[in-house]
Design a protein around this nucleic acid. Structure first.
Lengths: 215, 215
DNA sequence: GTCTATAGCAGGATAGAC
DNA sequence: GTCTATCCTGCTATAGAC
């Protein structure tokens, strides 16, 4: 691991290229050659700047994934502040918008959630970053926001299951774009994403839109 | 691709081992050597019986994944028939039970959903099997079952989004066991799975358990 | 810091004995 | 059908010039 006392544009290009490729294809399917070609630098650069491939992968999470998770969180807090209250409707609306429309470009968001899914299915050291430093604190914060509005009979586990359920939808509609597009019959354009946010908010607050007399 | 006119126990062992390993680690992280060791047969067996590694992977979906998807579907239909009606509550209960408690052992179910996630994140030819032959027909069937009970204003896209949302929860709670366990603080034992089914049914029918006066 | 060249190894696939 | 032995390609990682 070298000192970083010089021009490190190469490091940045490597991190960017590595992130995209790891997100798209997964750790094992990406070769160091592929990454250095995409970053327009030499094969040896990965080992010089990061030691080895595994550490490069970890650095992607530390240097690029984490900051983005924080941007999403900040956006959620801004959204919520803009609502003026912390009712479940405001919380969920703010959350869904931060995650689905949010501060990220479409490409960034896809990349972000793909990396997350890959860590869940193939956990490495980065898994701790994803769960302990990001998901767990977020979910506990959400739990505390919603708790006062939930039925008294709802214990902590059930409160968390509710939040996990909302999160599962957001995650799914991000990473499963391909099958979702196939099933609904069109692409993820902007109007669809607006309808998606609305759907997630509605579904989270009321479940299926069942007629009163048919429940 | 050889004729299958002889003893093909080796083929079966290969399919079983390959399935488990592909599910656990993903296509690229598994070597043919690893598979043949697990199947207690020779390295050359994969090429003899399946031609190459890729075809073995596809065969796993055709010979093992598809039949299991059909068993789940059959279980859903039995469950629903046992309910005596096709109300949303019955449909969702039958679906959640078929998917989460269902006809599969725990190991099989984990394997099944892991393979599914892997095809969604790294689509190959098997993706068609998963979407066109399994997900799409199932979701359209569910849409038709629920349609009569939904508000008249709900169009086909919104009906499908509702079903996709239910599915997203089931999928998530299966493949994301690790982070879910971390967050709720205990393992996936039988009583928890019962509570999980109940939660998914409740959430799908009514959304968040919010007090009437706090909505 | 960046490059070329190459060591050293693991992968998929095949040929040919049995 | 199953095995051993082997080919060859592609990988990560390193040594050393610039």
């Amino acid at each position: 691991m070298p000192p970083d006392n010089k021009n490190s544009m190469t490091q940045d290009r490597l991190l960017k290229s590595a992130e995209m490729l790891f997100a798209q294809k997964g750790y094992d399917a990406v070769s160091v050659r592929e990454i250095t070609n995409a970053a327009k630098c030499n094969l040896a650069a990965v080992n010089y700047h990061f030691g080895n491939k595994k550490t490069l992968y970890l650095s992607v999470f530390r240097e690029r994934w984490m900051p983005r998770a924080q941007r999403i969180r900040a956006c959620f807090e801004e959204n919520l502040a803009g609502c003026g209250d912390t009712s479940p409707a405001s919380v969920i609306q703010s959350l869904a918008e931060a995650l689905i429309k949010g501060p990220l470009t479409d490409k960034e968001r896809l990349c972000h959630f793909q990396l997350m899914i890959r860590e869940i299915t193939n956990p490495t050291e980065a898994f701790e970053i994803v769960t302990e430093e990001t998901m767990k604190p977020s979910f506990e914060g959400l739990g505390q926001l919603l708790q006062p509005y939930l039925h008294e009979s709802i214990d902590e586990e059930r409160a968390l299951l509710n939040i996990l359920s909302i999160f599962s939808m957001v995650l799914y509609f991000n990473f499963a774009r391909l099958p979702v597009s196939k099933i609904i019959g069109h692409a993820y354009d902007q109007p669809f994403k607006d309808r998606l946010v609305q759907h997630i908010v509605d579904f989270s607050l009321s479940g299926l839109p069942v007629r009163e007399n048919a429940k």
